[in-house]
Computed example of a mutant assay.
Amino acid sequence: MAKICIITKKKPMFGNNRSHALNATKKKFIPNLQYRKLWIPNKKKFIKIRISNKGMRIIEKKGIEKFFN
Rank of each mutant, 00 (worst) to 15 (best):
M1W: 08
M1G: 15
A2K: 07
A2Q: 09
A2C: 01
K3L: 07
I4W: 02
I4M: 05
I4F: 01
I6P: 00
I6H: 07
I7V: 15
I7S: 05
I7N: 08
T8W: 10
T8Y: 10
K9N: 14
K9F: 02
K10L: 04
K11E: 11
P12D: 07
P12G: 02
M13F: 02
M13R: 13
F14Y: 13
F14R: 00
G15R: 05
G15I: 04
N16M: 05
N17Q: 05
R18M: 14
S19A: 09
S19F: 03
H20S: 07
H20F: 05
H20Y: 05
A21K: 09
L22S: 09
N23A: 02
A24Q: 07
A24Y: 03
A24H: 01
A24M: 04
A24K: 12
T25K: 11
K26R: 10
K26A: 07
K26C: 00
K27L: 03
K27M: 06
K27I: 10
K28Y: 00
K28H: 01
F29W: 12
I30H: 05
I30Y: 06
P31E: 08
P31A: 02
P31M: 02
P31D: 09
P31S: 03
P31T: 04
N32C: 03
N32M: 04
N32W: 02
L33M: 13
L33C: 07
L33P: 01
Q34V: 15
Q34I: 15
Q34T: 15
Y35F: 08
Y35V: 07
Y35D: 12
R36D: 06
K37C: 14
K37H: 12
K37N: 15
L38A: 12
L38E: 08
L38S: 10
L38P: 12
W39E: 05
W39I: 04
W39M: 11
I40V: 15
I40R: 01
I40T: 10
N42T: 12
K43D: 11
K43L: 14
K43R: 14
K44F: 01
K44H: 09
K44E: 14
K44M: 13
K44R: 12
K45F: 05
K45H: 08
K45G: 02
F46D: 08
F46P: 00
F46A: 06
F46W: 13
I47Y: 12
I47N: 11
I47T: 11
I47G: 10
K48W: 01
K48D: 09
I49C: 07
I49A: 05
I49Y: 08
I49D: 03
I49P: 06
R50W: 06
I51F: 07
S52R: 04
N53A: 13
K54H: 09
K54D: 13
G55L: 14
G55D: 09
M56S: 02
R57G: 01
R57L: 04
R57Y: 00
R57F: 00
I58T: 06
I59W: 06
I59P: 06
I59K: 06
I59D: 10
I59V: 15
E60D: 15
E60S: 15
E60Q: 15
K61E: 13
K61V: 02
K62H: 12
G63S: 11
G63D: 13
G63T: 10
I64D: 04
I64N: 04
E65G: 11
E65D: 15
E65L: 14
E65M: 07
K66V: 08
K66I: 09
F67P: 05
F67Y: 15
F67Q: 08
F68E: 07
N69F: 03
N69D: 10
N69P: 15
N69E: 11
N69W: 00
